[in-house]
Amino acid sequence: MDLSIRGRARAYATFLGASFSANLKSVLEYRANFLLQVFGMMLNNAAFALFWGILIDRTGGIGGYSFEDVMVVWALVSTAFGLAHVVAGNVRSLGDIAVRGELDVYLLQPKDAFVNVLCSRTVVSAWGDFLYGYLVLCLLPGLSAGRLLLFSLLAAEGALVFAAAFAAAECLAFFLGNSRSLSEALHEFLLSFSLYPEKVFDPGMRWAFYTILPSGFIAFVPLAAFKAMDWGLVPILFLVAAAYMAASYALFRAGLRRYESGNQMGTRL
């Protein structure tokens, strides 16, 4: 076994690849359901675009956002949200898994339990979210390889922040027991705040967007970077995402010490 950093990175990449492939094969077992959910989600997102189009057409702009800005934010948030759930599908089930004592199977394997449990599932409808962002980007004027690459990087960074924030909210279950309603509320807040222009919110609450509900690093700053084609912000945003992920990981590790396992019958889907 190669214990060098490169060796470990390669082993984890192979494992994540195999896990992703198993997840995908598992959901493709039911092709009709997969296609229905993917296209259904894209249609659902498109309905919101229509709503925003009508709204901005009547008001001329909201919170400093033009229709194109709204579409870019929707594309970024949708692809980031989708990517987080496509790759780390258990990101919003972690709390239930811990409360039901179903972490055992992951703890018995020689892989980091946080990465292992998060990446052992893909959410079918999230594929629709993921693809929808790219569809919107393709429909907006000025598509280029540079814009596509920058968009992908910003969406990947947003996915990391989404995953870190969702997972942290789920980790509350280790400490509070059944914290489903609280974590659901945090999920909804984060997603909703990310989809509206920052300026529509009271300045007194904007600090939250750069701390506990990091919409600033999922939507607001990435939008500014995308509009200005500012590549310099990308590494900074990834550093921020890494910090959120590290905090979420620390919370999981602390919670794991309180894990009580369970004896429910279980199977991996």
Partner: peptide, 12 residues
Amino acid sequence: VFGQKSQLWFHL
């Protein structure tokens, strides 16, 4: 091997 918990993927 936990007889009540599977490590195999149900659909695969």
